[in-house]
């Protein structure tokens, strides 16, 4: 049997939740995840979740698509 213990915290208010996260982290309790019914800004920083690379990827896809489109178009026209 593993001796890792899990605690489940339930918060009514997002401000209490943020406060709770701070308190837990002060006491070196690692947080597995936080589930919320709406996006709460700032949790990802507290939990150390890195910024997604999706934006850059989308930009590269956009460039590729645009490039292919212009190429195709020129090919079809001449």
């Amino acid at each position: 049997m593993s001796n890792i213990k899990y605690i489940l915290g339930h918060f009514e208010d997002p401000d209490d939740l943020m406060h709770g996260i701070d308190k837990l982290q002060e006491n070196s309790v690692s947080i597995y995840d936080v589930y919320t019914p709406m996006p709460i800004h700032g949790i990802e920083d507290k939990l150390g979740i890195k910024r997604s690379r999706l934006g850059k990827v989308a930009f590269c896809f956009g460039l590729t698509g645009n490039h292919c489109n212009i190429n195709d178009n020129l090919y079809a026209c001449y």
Binding site: Y35, P39, E44, L54
Partner: peptide, 21 residues
């Protein structure tokens, strides 16, 4: 969908990208 921190983070970013598009 489970509403974890990562899903919301992605959600907000995707919304922003789609808004840009």
């Amino acid at each position: 969908w489970n509403g974890s921190v990562k899903t919301w983070q992605r959600f907000e970013l995707v919304s922003l990208i789609l808004a840009g598009v």
